[in-house]
Design a protein around this nucleic acid. Structure first.
Lengths: 143, 143
DNA sequence: CTACTTGCAAAGCCTTTGCAAACTA
DNA sequence: TAGTTTGCAAAGGCTTTGCAAGTAG
């Protein structure tokens, strides 16, 4: 499990180390990311932050997400209808999307990516650096 | 290996069975799809077809691709910078994208997706119906 | 004070849609 | 002829960018 407070501190430390300015909007975004288990998209983050900061703009959300992505602290999950973001587990991992309820499950404990990378290396002579693995189907609750 | 002529005939038969009208633009698009091993995007298809049909529009390309997708005869590969299409192997399969030369390799002979689906089913109780598996890295030629 | 950050509006991409004209069957 | 398909232009959704005003350090 990830401790939201620890994650928040880690994100904050990274921003500071990078020399970025610490604004209230950024702090709120870090807080939101460190708590969110649901892989929000930019628009959802924007709407959440707007509750506390009515003047915040979507552009600021995108800019800050971009910054965190560059620092390797946010994982972008590009889907057909826009990108979703994971600020708790910023390393590539499989995602399972339930086509009934829309939930996005994490597959960070699955071991098949290693099998995949090995097979791709051996059979295709292709050196995998990164991957984007999305599975669509029905989750246990919906089934 | 896929025989382009056979694939072309199969696509054509499917269109006819669907009751769609056979236009010269559609024939040219089918021909192009059945020959293309490089997973073109809509814009590339459009530019190729424009050589022979200078008045064809991008909208027509999208509409015809949509039709073929619905018939299950074209696979859409959604990437960050737009969708690419595979009209030769319209079933889901992994793709390897070389970050040096941009080539998109097919992984339709790889076996790990079965391992993946089984692991996801067993560990997460999630029933996979579909998947979109993209690996980024360096291909043999570029390495 | 200086440089970074913000909000706004505009623009960029890719894709879809509405509609009258053209065309297939 | 009837109904589909086409090209065009406009609009849609998501994301980025330019810039003047605001703010952190």
């Amino acid at each position: 499990m990830i401790d939201p407070e620890k994650r928040y501190q880690a994100l904050l430390a990274k921003l500071k180390a990078h020399g970025a300015r610490i604004t209230s909007h950024r702090l709120a975004l870090l807080r939101l990311l460190s708590v969110s288990e649901d892989h929000p998209d930019a628009s959802k983050i924007y709407n959440q932050l707007r509750i506390q900061f009515p003047t915040i703009s979507l552009a600021t959300v995108y800019k800050t997400l971009h910054l965190l992505k560059q620092e390797g602290e946010v994982l972008e999950i590009p889907l057909q209808n826009g990108a979703h973001f994971d600020g708790r587990k910023p390393y590539p991992h499989p995602h399972m999307i339930c086509t009934k309820c829309g939930k996005i499950l994490d597959g960070d404990k699955l071991t098949f990516p290693e099998v995949a990378n090995r097979e791709i290396q051996n059979k295709l002579n292709f050196e995998v650096a990164n991957s984007q693995l999305v599975f669509y189907g029905v989750c246990g609750q919906c089934h």
